[in-house]
Nucleic acid binder design. Structure first.
Lengths: 344, 344
DNA sequence: TTGTAGGCGTTATCAA
DNA sequence: TTGATAACGCCTACAA
């Protein structure tokens, strides 16, 4: 099976390559009959234009790339759906690109921009390490969506749509405190981590502090490095260890729903009940946090709205040449079955 | 920020383009010093080779494409990990390509093969509709992994790695029957569906039959068309309807774990218990089926092994020019908390 | 309405 | 060890 080019098609159709090109790309100046005939020949020979050649020649294509760090995270699923839908509605096409945990998303983006002639980029998840000279290589507009950022100073340099991880985390832990909990464990990221996990951890600490509870280091548990981060397995392993340590606690706050579910399993295995013996709280608002038994108290991020706003901003950037804009969505505290108040 | 080409780099380095190309691609015949100098210039100018031009020129690249139908399905997560790992180990690079539910994966593959000069392709999930002339357009080796196939006759025409969905489904329902269940409901795919869901449904019917139970149409429930297929939401909605129908049953077999979880929720909401009032069984062996409370009885597909075998076969096809080979893995019946026997 | 020819950025051939 | 140059397949002035 040899590859067939536009030239063959032209010969077979008895026309010039230009005409074939016109037929393919729906150009106006072409006789309907010749076009039909050409399309016929194309069908018969299973001709498919070579995209590399096309991209090489074309200066721009109507495509948006969405780079996802952690594509296996179910948190992104509803967002991806919105992206597909909205981008299609704008008659653009979407390239979904997974970025490895260790990969530098900006480098990937730079390369993609050249190869695919992108019109815009969405960075989904991960932590955005700021690097001016790299950023400057990105010539097309981009928006950060649910991406962690470390310092305030960075905020004005690019567009982003996020929730306030610190504040929302604070809200959850504050709620637990108000419910009478004083010994609140947490499953969080190692202290050298700089992702959103870090912000959620800070919120935890501040909430305890404001409620007159001092942080008990032995109740602060870090994700295991040798298990996939933010996974049920990790939450399970950490909680199991915590339970075995005999350190007393009445509630546990996992900085992600997935880990909260792992925590539940460990608690059940220890023969304890939720929420009678331990309250469990998560973060994100995954579907499974609702379906789990007991349903899990969590902070729901408005993922659809975030995704929609991300696209809106991106296209504003593309068409209206607007400046960077930054949107922080409020999240929602969903009190469900996995937490209860305590008296005493 | 203008795009910079190899020519600029050549000028800046005071050499010819060929030399620059050599430096980039680690060709042997090049002076180390000039190479170092060129690399320096490249760094300084943030030059990145244009992949379109490269692909256009190159006849082959060491890349494997994995096309996934339903990328949001957590079932594929562990498989993707294996693919990444194994393909990297072979010094190949991997392109993960999501395929829309409505898209024709073969067409996508054909286009990708031309554009990216693929060495091999893996089709993950979905249903493989057989089409000789399309298949013939695929000039590189490919393997179907956990992909549904409708007729026996198709089996010998290409390589595949699967479990026997019919048999494994049969095994589960047979187990339920042996546990004393006679009124077993199922959540399955609409009858016009031709995916793996179909095979699992057939297994259900056969098992009932062999156990002397006739199929009660009112206990055969189809996924809702207006809700995402194979989702918790779908399992929930269907089960809720079933419960409200007052039709009696003692067990429910969902052809996917996700739907089994939705079923559990509906049952809990109705104030019933699992497994005391209803047994619930799933299929796939997702992590969450273990973590759920109660843990869910399911058929675990050996996903890692399937993924490894898929890659092994693919590279055999590529290097050894072997003929099509077909591997069927046995799955495992995991009896857990969500099912119980009944006496009656 | 159609065709010719030049160029997109890269690599490979061949000669120097 | 290096460099000029011809492809790779497509699109688009420009010419007819």
């Amino acid at each position: 099976m040899e590859r067939i080019t536009i030239i063959e098609i032209a010969k077979l159709s008895g026309v010039g390559v230009t005409t074939v090109s016109r037929a393919i790309n729906n150009h106006p100046d072409i006789n309907e009959e010749t076009k039909a005939k050409i399309m016929q020949v194309i069908k018969e020979n299973n001709y498919i234009p070579n995209n590399s050649a096309r991209n090489l020649k074309l200066s721009a294509s109507k495509t948006i790339a969405v780079l996802i760090k952690g594509i296996t995270n179910p948190f992104f699923n509803p967002m991806i759906k919105v992206f597909e839908q909205e981008i299609q509605r704008k008659k653009y096409s979407l390239i979904l690109q997974r970025v490895d945990e260790k990969q530098d998303e900006i480098e990937v983006a730079i390369e993609m921009e050249k190869e695919r002639r992108l019109k815009g980029i969405v960075f989904l998840g991960g932590h955005f390490s700021y690097s001016v000279d790299k950023l400057n290589q990105l010539t097309v507009p981009f928006v950060l969506s649910t991406t962690g950022m470390s310092a305030e100073s960075e905020l004005n340099n690019f567009s982003s749509v996020v929730v306030d991880d610190f504040k929302e985390s604070y809200r959850m832990v504050d709620y637990l405190c108000k419910q009478g909990h004083k010994k609140i464990a947490t499953i969080t990221v190692p202290t050298d981590d700089v992702s959103i996990g870090r912000l959620r951890y800070e919120g935890y600490k501040k909430a305890l502090e404001d409620n007159g509870v001092s942080v008990n280091e032995r109740l602060v548990r870090f994700m295991k490095e040798d298990i996939e981060g933010y996974s049920m397995d990790n939450g399970y392993a950490v909680t199991k260890e915590l339970l075995e340590s005999q350190e007393e606690f009445t509630a546990i706050f996992a900085i992600a729903d997935s880990m909260a579910i792992g925590a539940c399993k460990a608690i059940f295995e220890a023969g304890k009940r939720i929420p009678e013996d331990y309250s469990v709280a998560g973060f994100d608002g995954l579907d499974i946090s609702y379906y789990y038994n007991p349903s899990i108290t969590t902070i729901r991020q408005p993922v659809e709205e975030i995704a929609e706003e991300t696209i809106r901003i991106l296209f504003d950037l593309i068409y209206k040449k607007t400046k960077h804009s930054r949107k922080i969505f409020p999240a929602e505290l969903l009190v469900r079955e996995s937490t209860a108040g305590i008296s005493g």
